[in-house]
Amino acid sequence: MSLKLKALLKSPWVFHLSTGSCNNCDIEILDCLTPRFDIERFGMLLIGSIKHADVLLVTGSCNRMSVERLKVLYEQVPKPCLVVAIGTCAGSRGIFKDSYNCPVPLDKIIPVDVYIPGCPPKPEAMIAGVVKLIEKVGGA
């Protein structure tokens, strides 16, 4: 494994994308930054521009407004980039499956690498999910 890939796993910068969520997952993502969980320990940073991102955290059930924009945004991320679907909504649209405004599940729009289920997943679960992702990629 190259040094650069190793570095990627040690310093994943995450960008948070909400595609029509209920706020809960989003707040729990922010919670991960705060003193109790402090993901900066693992070199993770929440960054503001998608051009700096290594990991996309997608929450929510992908409504009609989001679908096209999500594709555009995924194009804009510099690769390699990992996509993590946070919460049940992003994973499978959850209770919003039958809504008229949630036409397509997330993984039919962009490739998803990891699903973290839960409504919302606890911050511990999110960290565990991302760490597992890192282990998987790093194990190659």
């Binding site: 409504n63 209770i95 919003f96 809504s99």
Partner: peptide, 14 residues
Amino acid sequence: IGYNHRGIEKLSEM
């Protein structure tokens, strides 16, 4: 707005 619209009222009626 509308990026977050999920149609909950309609769902609720089901």
